[in-house]
Design a protein around this nucleic acid. Structure first.
Lengths: 244, 244
DNA sequence: CGCGGCGATCTGCCATCACAGATTCTTGAC
DNA sequence: GTCAAGAATCTGTGATGGCAGATCGCCGCG
């Protein structure tokens, strides 16, 4: 009953801007592979779907473009990029360079509570593999990695990794959908043991193995069963290889 | 004199969107250090300055925010981040991880013509150091590195590196302005020799040395002679350490 | 002299509308 | 039946206007 407070104060949740909400929502879709490579996005449709105007959507897509998750073609098209073998390899190479480092840097910040959460997530991943639940698997995989990296307050390194996952997500989904999750081996357990033992070197190697594992699995599954194929040389070509 | 072509065709330059122009211009300013850390940006001012409306400016700033070059504070402020020692170290660590790799990958694509351009740029850098021309030095330094990385068509790796430089630029300027360019050693020559010899390992080490060199120079110059200092512990604190 | 409060002015943010290029679908001529 | 021209309908883009929060400064009260 103090005299102040003309209206209820929003102590938490200081009213995030709409474009931020939109970006978050779209990011989730990308990382969890709910958007399919090669498909087009429309500002108007997204705006209507989310109940906002075009403006915040456009802004969110602008950010996503900067993050490489979408391409803004000059020909009035904004599409989620298709994957080429080259692009895919580069993506994984970047992950190899950054993620083990991020894990090692985060290691000192991983407390017992977080470690137990990691174990729970890993169990969920195991279930997902058994039941062939692709959604659960991808969500679990994301949670697992970023539960590690984000133990330390998010910095530039983690940000770069997030950018990689934004580009990685959509493609991962289609590949796993094709190959199935059955023959996934669980490299995560190695990581958990390394964390429990506070062994940075082991953790580094475990992450590297995990990433390379996905590469072997996916990379061998063949590219180019996508929207349309042109010619026969490199199976996949951008239908519109113009600038930007 | 064909029957078609109601108006002149724009064969090159397909009329880039305004927001793209704005982003390019701002990027140049950031990379070349023409913006000072801690300063605020206003959409209206920039719009007026560039002769466009707020809309494309906001979009460009959105991209720059995704690239970490600016922070969009919730309190109606959009600022170029100040530098903390922590942030600075992380930035350089990321450069160490990515740039030598990018150089090595680009090495096969560097032809004689590009190599000679590299030498010219390096000469210009030498002159800039002698004359203490900070603008020329920073421009030359940027040109030198990206002349190497961009020998290979720009991919994800180069994109990540660009993001790092966008964040790096503003701070580099103030540090060099403080320390001076006099005692800069030229690690670039090592890189040039490595390229001429087609020696990937040598090139890798040269780049690493170049980056660490800057780190030693800058890192030792002390942080926190910036806008305002608070307390005495860690010399530099965000004046507004809220979310985002 | 100090300080509290109110107004002018700044800010980012978002909705709306208009424009122009591109695409698609229809329609009409041969 | 075939194909080309044009209209209808998409697309991203940009300017404008206005809303609400934040900030700064001035003015007057104590």
């Amino acid at each position: 009953m103090s005299s102040k407070r003309p209206k209820a104060p929003p102590p938490l949740a200081p009213a995030a801007p709409l474009h931020s909400d939109v970006h978050d929502e779209l990011s989730r879709r990308f990382i969890s592979g709910k958007v399919t490579p090669g498909s087009a996005l429309s500002t108007r449709r997204l705006a209507e779907e989310m109940g906002v105007s075009q403006t915040p959507v456009r802004e969110a897509l602008s950010r996503l473009a900067a993050e490489g998750a979408v391409q803004i073609r000059s020909k009035r098209k904004i599409v989620v990029p298709t994957m080429t073998e080259e692009r895919f390899k580069e993506l994984l190479r970047c992950r190899e360079l950054l993620e083990p480092e991020a894990a090692v840097r985060a290691l000192p910040y991983i407390d017992a509570r977080r470690l137990s959460r990691l174990k729970r997530v890993d169990d969920a991943i195991g279930d997902a593999i058994i039941h062939g639940d692709l959604n659960a698997y991808m969500q679990g995989n994301f949670d697992f990695h970023f539960l590690i990296y984000d133990a330390q307050p998010r910095g530039i390194l983690n940000r770069l990794i997030e950018i990689l996952w934004l580009q990685f997500g959509p493609y991962m989904r289609v590949v796993y959908g094709r190959v199935g999750t059955a023959n996934l081996v669980d490299q995560h357990e190695r990581a958990i043991r390394a964390i429990a033992a506070r062994d940075a070197g082991k953790l580094h190697r475990a992450l590297l193995a995990d990433i390379r594992d996905g590469m072997g699995l996916i990379g061998g599954s063949g590219f180019g069963r996508e929207p349309r194929r042109i010619g026969r040389g490199r199976p996949f070509v951008y239908p519109d290889p113009e600038i930007l």
